[in-house]
Design a binder for these strands. Structure first.
Lengths: 138, 138
DNA sequence: TGAAATCTTGACAAAAAAACTTAGGTATGA
DNA sequence: TCATACCTAAGTTTTTTTGTCAAGATTTCA
């Protein structure tokens, strides 16, 4: 249960754009340098962010990226979900032999569902505007 | 951010022992069959559980495993932490150039710390006695 | 228009982690 | 002493993650 660099990179990239919200677009190369992310890899991630409506692009010379919404309307959950997908569902071994009717219930499932919900609840309320405020001066 | 089979196997194995708490030991092969876990792989996991004081073993013929504590004293967090370790810490790129003093603060770090805490809070309160009760008849 | 700067796409390679296997060893009870 | 079942370490395979490459399309500024 560890954090992928994918999600870390994504959060940092969006954060970089959030700091810049309202100004010009930022070139991907600039984000890459500021946050120490391989350019080509970042491009892949940013495609997903764009398709999820978190980020939008301006093409051509002087082009770049900017947020598609205000930082207060983008949560950390939006970014994580977009880059990592939801938690993998947990399936239990069917135990028909024992005459068990709760096919979809097992110890694992109960736990992971609670974990998933609790993460979501926590992270849904972290908006990028909060992060920018909290890290002002950085 | 997905659930490893390691943690799933571990939880299911401990659950199997919890159901049996107070009776004889269970052979690893039995657990393996009931929960559909490769025997030798389960052995590796159970070593960690033993070293963490969650499970204890009886060697030799008629040997096997049993819980080292009552199910009400073992939480899902105990098992997960033991098998997966804690969340990987997130380090930020140092931004001395900007005169930033909050070296250890970045968007990622704020988020992951909150995620970690929230998972821990949730899962610490799931005891195996609860799981056994909740899944009675299965 | 044409060149510069950028995004777009897909395939691929390297690296790391996870999952699983093999091959032995050791303790215990019948 | 022999069958049973735990114990340990090392190696292998598979999958996932991370990162790279190359060709091309799009847009803007001069």
């Amino acid at each position: 249960m560890r954090v992928s660099t994918r999600a870390r990179y994504g959060v940092n990239a969006v954060y970089e754009l959030a700091k810049n919200y309202g100004d010009d677009t930022i070139a991907i190369k600039t984000i890459s340098e500021r946050q120490d992310i391989p350019v080509q890899y970042l491009e892949q991630l940013i495609v997903k962010l764009r398709k999820a409506g978190i980020v939008e692009s301006v093409r051509g010379a002087k082009g770049g990226y900017r947020l598609a919404k205000a930082p207060k309307d983008i949560s950390a959950w939006d970014v994580i979900l977009c880059l990592e997908g939801d938690f993998a569902p947990v399936h239990c071994k069917q135990q028909d032999a024992n005459g068990c009717s709760k096919i979809n219930a097992c110890a694992g499932k109960i736990i992971w569902e609670r974990v998933n919900t609790s993460i979501k609840n926590e992270v849904e309320n972290i908006m990028f505007s909060d992060l920018v405020n909290q890290l002002k001066g950085c």
